[in-house]
Amino acid sequence: MTRKGFKSLLLLLAAALLLPLCTAPALAAPDARALLKESESRHRTKTQQYSGDLTVVNKEGKVRKKGWNSYRQGYAGDSKNLIRFTDPPEVKGVGFLSLPRPGSDNPDQWLYLPSMKRERRIAPQDRDASFVGTDFNYEDMEEFDHEKYKVALQGEETLDGQPCWVISAIPLEKGSKSIYQKLILYLRKDILYLVREDLIRKGDKEPAKRLVLSDIKNVEGHYVAARMEMTDLKKGSHTTVTLKQISFNRPQPASRFTLQNLTREGGD
């Protein structure tokens, strides 16, 4: 199970932080690219840590939960990440370390399994694979990089009483690795934070999945969605992620993002 969880969680975090797209309300002629650039620059943080809970509810209503602690240093493609599972008992202590590699899109990733007492290098995952039966797959967890998409402002819409910009994003690369042909992003106008994303698979016309970000808080001067819900509109299942004890720009020990630390049982 494990392997999928870690990367996903990492990417969930990315969804919470990188997708909060902000802009200046004063922009005279909103341009999708400008909005996305502005958002990225405003929401950069040097470090972040939080505790996360993940709840999966399948279409029969069966509920499963997971918990983890996450630490990040750096931002986007240059970030170091450590995730340690805390719950359920059978995955407690499982760790995931991701370190950026200069000049490569793929970071170096290792997994520590307490049952094996050793770390294992892992390969980049299948983008369409879900993790531990949740409604997220690997591509959903990847950091949204607007430069890899052709973006366009589609209009305006009000969601939960909040006016939003609606932006479409189509993979630029021909024959893209993406499993989606289009993403529809909804940005709250006041804080320009992503509050919804509709994901349309290749060959489909209607969204296959919908990500909703809510419980948006201002933590230490940074907006963050403390709750994210991914719904599989075809399967009827949904996965909810809640973030707790969030903090930004707290100095991280240099030894935290090392293989030595990854293999420390009972450690961070």
Partner: peptide, 21 residues
Amino acid sequence: RVPLAPSHDLEFGRFQLGWGK
């Protein structure tokens, strides 16, 4: 397990080893 330095540890007692690739 007692840390001797930020990335150096001394561990003693009864535990499992896991070596190899």
